[in-house]
């Protein structure tokens, strides 16, 4: 089951307004709960700036997405912002393939159970319901930092490697490097409030009896 919700309209419009937009829309799991109508109404409001749109199944499949990106490379090149309608995994895949582009997710992922692992990829979505990828260059601090820190690195990384898992790169250094490359380090100045765990739809809340 996939449950997603579109971020607040004002937030999305303030991001895309006046910019050339290229849209990725994932339909892989749409039969479950994909706010399709809401997305249509929303995109209608800035349609004259939409220079291309790619609808596909399973945006989480990297090889697939790479092929699509090659196909649409001219439009993507011209776009000032890439807008994603998918779960957090799809957003991370596109961000990793378009490191120089501003990739913005329009959705918060609430629930992915049963779909994780359907396609093989390196990314994971924490289903936190308040997607942070727009502030972190498309690298998730919740799934990549063992402490899930929101306000920067813990300071334990040595030579760029995580103290908890020395095999892995420090997520915050990856975030820093990507945002620096994009000239968007100012995003890291924001003090993030603690997460809202009420946003998570838990198993227990969804279960309708045994």
């Amino acid at each position: 089951m996939l449950v997603m919700q579109v971020k607040p309209e004002e937030e999305i419009l303030s991001r895309v307004w006046g910019r050339r937009v290229f849209i990725f829309e994932c339909f892989g799991c749409r039969e479950v709960h994909f706010p399709e109508e809401k997305i249509e109404t929303l995109v209608e409001k800035f349609k004259e700036k939409v220079i291309g749109k790619l609808s596909c199944d399973y945006l989480c499949r990297r090889e697939f997405v790479q092929d699509y990106i090659n196909e649409y490379c001219q439009e993507i090149e011209r776009a000032e912002i890439i807008l994603i309608f998918s779960c957090g995994v799809g957003t991370q895949v596109v961000s990793s393939l378009l490191e120089d582009k501003i990739v913005y997710t329009a959705c918060d992922t609430l629930y992915l159970n049963g779909f994780q692992g359907l396609t093989v990829q390196d990314f994971n979505c924490n289903q936190c319901g308040e997607c942070y990828l727009n502030y972190t260059g498309g690298i998730c601090p919740l799934t990549n930092c063992p402490k899930g820190l929101l306000n920067g690195p813990c300071g334990g990384a040595k030579n760029g490697k995580c103290e908890v898992n020395p095999e892995a790169d420090c997520a915050w250094e990856l975030i820093y490097n990507r945002l620096k490359k994009q000239g968007r380090l100012n995003l890291l100045k924001r003090v993030f409030p603690p997460r809202n765990y009420q946003k998570i739809i838990t198993e227990s809340l969804l279960r309708k009896g045994v």
Binding site: G152, Y176, V191
Partner: peptide, 17 residues
Amino acid sequence: ADPLELQLMKMEKKIEV
């Protein structure tokens, strides 16, 4: 810390709060 800039950004936040 390396990168120091990232460390200083966090330090600034700490001062701010």
